[in-house]
Computed example of a mutant assay.
Amino acid sequence: MTDPFLLPEPVRIWAEKTLGALVPVRDASLDVTLRSSWHVVRAADNARFVIKIARTSEGFTQETFVHRHVVSALGAGSAPRLLATLPSHLALLLTDLQGIPLPDLQVKVAALRRIHWRSGVLVAKLHQAGEATAGNRQEADTAVLRLAQDARLHLDVVGDRLSVEEQKLVAHLADRLSVLGGLPLGFVHGCLERGLVQGPQAHLSLRDFETAGFAPVVVDFARLACGPWLAQPHLRLDFFNGYGRGLSGDERLALRALTALHAVRRLAADGKEPGHRQTAEDAHAVLARLTKEVPV
C-alpha cells in the first residue's frame, strides 16, 4: 500500500533530475486532505527546498503565474524562488524560506509591532504589483457580492450559535457590503495570516500564492482582523503605517463586513464539536468588537 505521506515517486524522480539525490522525507502536512507540501534536503550539501502539489489545476496555474510574473515586485528574498514545475502532477519546486507564520510568533510586543509595520510595507508592494483590467474589476465586484450573499447561508448554519443581535449585525453588514462597488483593487494574497512568515535574522517573507489574484485590497485584511489584530488592536495601526495609507470610508465598512463574514464562515466550517470551542469564542469576540465600533 502506498504511504500517503511519502513524496510520490514520479515527483521525486523529477525533483532529483533538477536537484540531485534527495534525503527521504515525509509530508510536512498533518492533514493529507490539505495541499501536500514536502520539505526536502539535497544529499550533496544539505540545501533545503520545498515541493508543493497543488490541490487543483487552477491553483497550480495561479501560483506558477505569481512566481513568474509578480513576486519579483516584492524584492529579493521576500518570497521563495520557483525552480521548476511538473504540470502533469501539479507540482512546483521552490527554494525553502524557513519561517514562522505571524499568528504563531512568540515575541515581545515591541518586536511584534515592528513585524506588523514591515508586513504592511511588504503587502503594499504585493498589492501594487501589476495593473488591474476592466475584467478584473468586474470579477472583483462579483466576488464581493457573492461573499455578501453567502452570509445568509452561513447564518442558516450557525444561527443557533449566535445571539439575535449578532445575527442582525452580520445580516446588516452583508447588506451594506452587497451595495458597495468601486473598492480599490490590487494583487492580493488571499491568506495573509498564514502567508506572512518571519525567518532568521527577523527577515519577513510571503509564501503560498495559490489563492492570489486581483481583488479589492481590503479582502486581504479580514483574516488579520480576526487573528492577531483582535487581541492587539495597535498592531492594525502599525500595519497600516507600514502599508502607507489608511482605509477609505467604504473600505472601512467593507472590512467590518468581511471580518464579520470571515468569523461566521469559520464558525460554520468548524462545526459544533466541543473541540471547536475556541473558534466559537473568537467569533463572538470579533462580533462584539464590531458592535462597539462606530458604524461607517
Rank of each mutant, 00 (worst) to 15 (best):
D270E: 15
G249D: 12
D270I: 01
A260K: 08
L230A: 08
W229R: 01
T259W: 00
D238M: 08
F239S: 04
P233W: 03
L230T: 11
G244C: 12
H234Y: 03
N241D: 15
L261M: 15
T259R: 00
T259C: 00
A231I: 11
W229N: 04
R252I: 11
G227R: 02
R265I: 07
T259N: 00
R236N: 05
A254I: 07
H262F: 01
G227P: 07
G249R: 13
S248T: 15
L230Q: 07
P228Q: 13
L255H: 07
D270F: 14
L235E: 08
H234A: 15
L237F: 05
R256C: 04
L247Y: 10
C226S: 06
A263Y: 00
Y243E: 07
R266L: 09
S248D: 09
G242Q: 10
G244Q: 12
R252M: 14
R252Q: 15
P228Y: 07
L253H: 01
R236E: 13
L258R: 04
A260E: 07
L230I: 11
Y243D: 06
E251V: 02
V264T: 13
L237R: 12
R265M: 14
A231V: 14
H262C: 01
A257D: 05
Q232S: 10
L258T: 09
T259E: 01
Y243R: 09
W229I: 08
A263L: 00
L235I: 05
D238V: 03
Q232R: 14
A231L: 14
A263T: 00
L255S: 04
E251I: 01
A263Q: 00
L237E: 10
D250I: 00
L237H: 08
A260S: 10
S248L: 11
R266H: 10
G227A: 12
D250Q: 10
A260G: 05
A269K: 15
A260T: 06
L255G: 08
A254P: 01
L261T: 07
Q232L: 11
V264D: 09
G246H: 10
A268G: 03
P228L: 13
D270G: 14
L230N: 08
G246D: 15
W229E: 03
R245S: 15
A257F: 04
C226Y: 03
R236M: 12
R252D: 11
P233D: 05
G246C: 05
R266P: 00
A269P: 04
T259G: 01
R256K: 09
P233K: 03
L247H: 10
A260M: 05
F239M: 06
A263W: 00
D238Y: 01
G244N: 12
